[in-house]
């Protein structure tokens, strides 16, 4: 059943991934404020990850259960990182 359905053009996705990778490398050399550069780079990384997850891992075609399995741990990692901030990041400055 999974095998017969329409799938995205994998090569086009690859082209996008490469373009975004080059963009991230170029952004890191831009004469912007450090925080702006970091922000842009991680936005690009998130878009790349999303492209892979949606197209290559086929999340685009999956139901809510698999989505939940994929998204909940990501949220937990974000929560863990934020809750560690007071003890490490705010602590030393």
């Amino acid at each position: 059943m999974t095998l017969e359905r329409a799938h995205p053009n994998y090569v086009t996705v690859w082209v996008w991934l490469v373009v975004l990778m080059i963009a991230a490398v170029l952004v890191s050399y831009l004469p912007l404020a450090k925080s702006a550069v970091v922000f842009l780079i991680f936005v690009i990384a998130a878009v790349k990850a999303l492209l892979v997850a949606l197209n290559y891992m086929h999340l685009k075609f999956e139901g809510p259960v698999l989505w939940a399995i994929a998204v909940v741990p990501v949220l937990l990692v974000v929560g863990l990182t934020l809750l560690l901030f007071p003890d490490f990041v705010f602590h030393h400055h």
């Binding site: 698999l66 909940v72 741990p73 990501v74 990692v77 990182t81 560690l84 901030f85 030393h92």
Partner: peptide, 25 residues
Amino acid sequence: WWFLASEIMVFGGLISSYIVARLAS
């Protein structure tokens, strides 16, 4: 997918530690 969820937490724990350690100093 369940296995990958646990893997996200492994790398997530490591990346999380890296981010806070890096921002701390």
